[in-house]
Every structure is written in structure tokens, then in C-alpha cells.
Lab assay of single mutants.
Amino acid sequence: MAAGGDHGSPDSYRSPLASRYASPEMCFVFSDRYKFRTWRQLWLWLAEAEQTLGLPITDEQIQEMKSNLENIDFKMAAEEEKRLRHDVMAHVHTFGHCCPKAAGIIHLGATSCYVGDNTDLIILRNALDLLLPKLARVISRLADFAKERASLPTLGFTHFQPAQLTTVGKRCCLWIQDLCMDLQNLKRVRDDLRFRGVKGTTGTQASFLQLFEGDDHKVEQLDKMVTEKAGFKRAFIITGQTYTRKVDIEVLSVLASLGASVHKICTDIRLLANLKEMEEPFEKQQIGSSAMPYKRNPMRSERCCSLARHLMTLVMDPLQTASVQWFERTLDDSANRRICLAEAFLTADTILNTLQNISEGLVVYPKVIERRIRQELPFMATENIIMAMVKAGGSRQDCHEKIRVLSQQAASVVKQEGGDNDLIERIQVDAYFSPIHSQLDHLLDPSSFTGRASQQVQRFLEEEVYPLLKPYESVMKVKAELCL
């Protein structure tokens, strides 16, 4: 049975990233139509530049190519590739079939990587351009969430054990800070992308030097003109047959890092959902379990974690691919890159769409948070109580021993009897502590235990987050809708 299948058929496997999760716009960027249309555009740009620099290419040939950029006979191309065992030459023939007058000058002087690699770089750039505003929107939604809850005390956790208090907004800023680093890295790697350009079979530009009869300047002009037509500021000066596969490492490393950030955020949300302090959106008709109707599973956060793990592992592909590119190139890269580049971007696209949807509907339960604080705060307040007693004339050592005994009794009630923490009640009825009984409410005010959390939130948002989001103001209103 021949390899390949009808990918629109229910009898043929289709990647869930495309069929179930990723956005239509990201799927289109990695589609065959987008790819092969870009090949034709690159052939047109090459012909236009070659004509401008004096090669015998007519206006009629150029116009014929322009008129057929979208006229792609995919069936013919597939048949040609089956016959020739070469995808680029299959599309040269297919393009030439609908451009008979231009057929002889299509791909003039070029090698397969002229269309293959340059198209990949265009796709990487455009895919990054799709991700950047999506990530900015996630940051914006979380920034709104953090600002609104900047002063809401909550129990902090280290080692997932109760620690000092923080605020809900401050905790959210930990998430935002990681995503801001990801946004900066995505922008950097996007701006650092260079075009492969017009380089020939081993990167020496020998074929173009021959076409222009040894004119170095025209060869350099050709490279520059096509690079500018493709919208790049610069091209690699040095290439082998391909652009260095280190570029793929750079791009997928940034995406993998984004995956790590999203995994951490969504894990926190899942843990908070278990504590009943916070939940992701839950639709009115949504079913959490087929057997347990009360369940409210954090399905979206779980999906993000599941896909983020996949995204983090994909960076190993370009690392290994770059390491086995012998001399000017081997074909070890080809099949692998067809999979890992598309999957990385479709996965990143999915987790950003999902995280935006989550961040637009996060639900906080202040009463649950308050109750958990009441359970733990008495123990945390013991040092403040000791200091207040010393100020009232008591002995630190005597007070410490009193607190120690009462704390152990209260802990026994919590752990052995399943009761509430009654340390404060014990202190309130103990005559030894009568000098500070009137101060206990103040000493137990949760806001006095959150330090500068709310001020940190305000400063972080104003100095770091809002300036970073400013270039994306025009796209901030787009909502994230999930079908599944």
C-alpha cells in the first residue's frame, strides 16, 4: 500500500493539533497551500530580480507567473513527485505547466533550498508574528487579574506546605514575570531571523556568478533584492546548502521555554482548584465526569500541561538535527523538520489560546482563602504575639514557653481530632496574655502579614508589564474561544 493518505478522510490519521486544537490561522501558515504558494512567490521574486539585473526574462513571463501564483494543481504535483521522487522539481514542473512561456526560467540558477529553506524562514517569521500578540493578550488578562487582587491576602506555599502570606495578585505576578520573559525572547528570536537568500547549491553562489558572467556586484544585488522582497532586513552571508540548523534550535528553545512557563502556571491553577481557592472557567453544560456528576475538573489547565510537556520535548529534535548536518548538509534534517517545526508552533498556539481562555474567566473564592488563612495564621502570628507581650512588660522566655504549650495543644486538636485551630481562643482565655487581649485582632490582621506584596504588584505592572504590552494595544480586544 502506498504511503500517505487522504487526510480529510475519517479513515486516515490526522494530527489532533490540526484537527482538534490549533487555530485556523496557525494551521494555514503550515498548510501545503501556504507552503507551495510561497515557493511560487519566491520563484517570481527571483525572476523579477534577475530581470532587473539584466537576464533575458520578459515582462510577459513575469506576468504569467504572477497570474498563476494561486493556480496550484495539487493532484498534478503529487503525481509528479511520485514520478520524480523530488518535491521541488515536482512543483517546478507543475508551475511550468500553467506558465508555459515562463517554464524555462522558473528556478533559474537556484537549488531546492532556495524555495525550501527560504519558505521555512518566512513561515517561522509569520508563525512567530501570530504567537506574539496571543502571548501579549494572556499577559494582559493576567495583569488585569493581578491588579484587581493585588491586596487580597492568601496563604503562600513553599514545598506545598503553608508559608508566609502573600497576595493573590502577587502570586499571579510570578506567572506574568515568566511570560514577559517569554514574550521578550519570542520577539528577540523573531527579529534575529535572517533570510537564507540566493546562495546556490553549497552556499557559494557559483551558479549565479556564472549567470551574471562573473559580476560579483550583481550577485550581491540579486541576494539583497530577493531578501528585501521577502520582507527581511538581512540575509546570511555564510550558508551551506541550507541555512544553519542552529536557527531551528533557537526558535524551538524559546517555544519550549514558553511551554515550561505555561505548565507551571496551569499546575498552580490545578492545585488551587483542589484547594477550592480558584477555578478555571466551567461552562453551564460542561460535564466533569461521566460517573461523578459533582466533579469540576480543571480540564483546560490539564490540557495545557499535557501539550506543554510535548512542546518542551520537541527542542531535542533540532538539537540532534543540527549535530548531524555533515559538511554542507545531509538530508537527516528533512523529514524531522517537516514534523517538529509545525508541531512546535501548533502546540504553542494551542496552549496560548487555551491559557487566554482560562485567564479571561478565572474565578476566585475569597471566603475559602480566608478560612485557610484562619487555619494557619495563628501559628504564624506567634512571633508577633511574643513581641507584643514583651512590649507590655512580659518575659520573652516565659511567653515563648506559654505559646509553645498552647500551640501544641491547638495542633493536637487540628491533627488528632480534625478540629479547627483554636490557638487564639486559648490565648484569649489565658490570664497571662490579658495585657494584649485587646491587640489580638490587630495582630491577626492578614494584611499585616503580606509585606509589600501589593506595592510590588503595582510597581511591576507599571514599570515592566504595561510598557512591554504597549506595541500590542491594537490587538488586545480579541477574545479566545474554545470549541473543545
Results as ranks from 00 to 15, higher is better:
M65D: 04
A342I: 15
V138I: 09
L55W: 06
R296C: 14
A235M: 13
R338D: 01
L108N: 09
G288A: 06
V465K: 13
F30W: 11
M316H: 11
V457S: 05
V219P: 02
I436A: 04
S395P: 05
L44Q: 15
E425S: 12
K199S: 14
M89Y: 04
D215K: 14
G197P: 02
S12T: 07
A453W: 00
K367N: 15
E48Y: 05
K199W: 00
E81L: 01
P153N: 04
Q241V: 00
A392S: 08
P10D: 10
E463Y: 10
Y34I: 11
L131Y: 03
T347R: 01
C98L: 09
K295E: 15
I424V: 13
E60T: 04
M389F: 08
V254H: 10
D144F: 10
M299H: 08
S31K: 08
S261P: 02
L132E: 11
C180T: 14
S15N: 10
K367W: 04
Y21P: 13
M299V: 04
V251A: 11
P16S: 15
R374T: 08
L121P: 00
D430Q: 13
P10C: 12
H7L: 11
R303L: 02
L211C: 04
V247N: 03
V88N: 03
V251W: 13
D445G: 08
R85N: 03
N126H: 11
Q41G: 12
R194S: 10
T347K: 00
G288M: 04
W43V: 03
Q285R: 07
E360H: 07
H86I: 03
L17N: 12
I176T: 08
T52S: 09
K479Y: 12
C304Y: 01
V457A: 10
Q456F: 06
A90Q: 04
D223K: 03
M76A: 10
S67E: 08
L193M: 15
G231R: 08
A344T: 04
A260P: 01
P16M: 14
A206W: 04
G451L: 05
L17Q: 10
L346F: 00
T321P: 01
T52D: 07
T350Y: 08
V168P: 12
S290G: 01
Q325W: 04
T201G: 02
K218Q: 06
Y243S: 14
S447Q: 12
C99L: 07
Q428T: 11
N357E: 03
V429C: 10
E376R: 03
S448A: 10
T204Q: 13
K391V: 10
A381I: 05
H91N: 06
F345K: 01
A49Q: 01
I265G: 06
Y472K: 03
N384Y: 06
P56W: 03
N118K: 00
G393H: 12
N68R: 04
A344D: 02
W43E: 14
N421P: 10
I269V: 09
M299T: 08
D268V: 01
K276V: 03
I385C: 13
I72Q: 07
P471S: 13
K35Q: 10
D32K: 07
V414Q: 03
Q375T: 01
P378A: 01
K101A: 11
Q320K: 00
L130C: 10
L142C: 09
E328T: 00
L484Q: 15
I373E: 00
C399K: 02
K367H: 10
R245S: 01
C180G: 09
V429N: 13
N68W: 09
Y34V: 02
F28P: 05
F433Q: 03
R303P: 00
A342D: 14
G288C: 03
L222I: 03
D441K: 11
E417T: 07
F379N: 04
L331R: 05
Q286T: 01
S253Y: 10
L131C: 06
T382H: 05
Q164A: 14
G169D: 02
S67C: 06
L152N: 07
S334P: 01
L311P: 00
S151C: 03
E463H: 15
D11G: 07
K295V: 00
E50D: 06
L482Q: 13
L17C: 13
H263S: 01
L53P: 00
L108W: 10
V189R: 10
S207V: 12
L461Y: 07
L468K: 15
F379P: 08
V457I: 11
E80P: 05
Q51R: 11
E220V: 09
E228S: 09
M278A: 04
P162S: 08
Q375F: 15
D445M: 10
E283Y: 01
D73S: 10
H400F: 04
S323I: 02
K199M: 10
R396I: 04
Q439W: 07
L131P: 09
A348G: 12
L443W: 03
V88W: 03
E280V: 00
L179R: 03
P446R: 04
G200S: 09
V247S: 11
Q320F: 08
Q51C: 05
E279T: 06
D32W: 09
E417H: 08
E383C: 06
V364S: 12
E463L: 14
A256Q: 03
N297E: 00
Q320T: 09
A291F: 00
R459D: 14
Q61Y: 12
Q397K: 10
L255K: 02
D317M: 13
K276M: 06
D216H: 15
L53C: 09
D216C: 04
F433M: 09
V363T: 01
R190N: 04
D216A: 12
E50K: 07
V364L: 13
S23M: 05
A308Y: 05
K477M: 15
L355R: 01
R452L: 09
E302S: 02
M26I: 14
P446T: 12
P281A: 15
S447K: 11
W326S: 06
I57M: 06
A127W: 00
T202S: 14
S15G: 15
L314E: 08
H86R: 01
D332W: 04
L314W: 07
I386K: 02
S474K: 05
Q456M: 11
L484G: 15
F212D: 08
T154P: 01
D215N: 06
R270G: 02
H310A: 13
D445R: 11
M278V: 09
A381Y: 13
A273Q: 01
T166S: 08
C172R: 05
K367Y: 04
I269K: 00
K295C: 00
Q409K: 11
F236R: 06
Q51N: 07
E283F: 14
G203R: 02
Q161K: 05
H400I: 08
K66R: 04
L272Y: 02
L53Y: 05
D216I: 05
F449E: 08
L186G: 14
L355C: 12
E328F: 00
L482I: 14
Y114E: 12
F345G: 08
S112L: 04
Y466E: 12
T94C: 05
L128Y: 15
L331I: 01
S261E: 04
L331E: 01
T204H: 06
G96P: 08
F449K: 13
A335D: 01
F327N: 05
D117H: 03
V262D: 07
D178V: 11
V315G: 10
T239A: 08
D192Y: 13
C340L: 11
A163H: 00
F232C: 03
I106H: 01
H437R: 07
T38M: 07
E302T: 14
A308H: 06
C173L: 05
Q458T: 14
D120A: 09
R374A: 07
K170I: 01
K233P: 08
R303F: 00
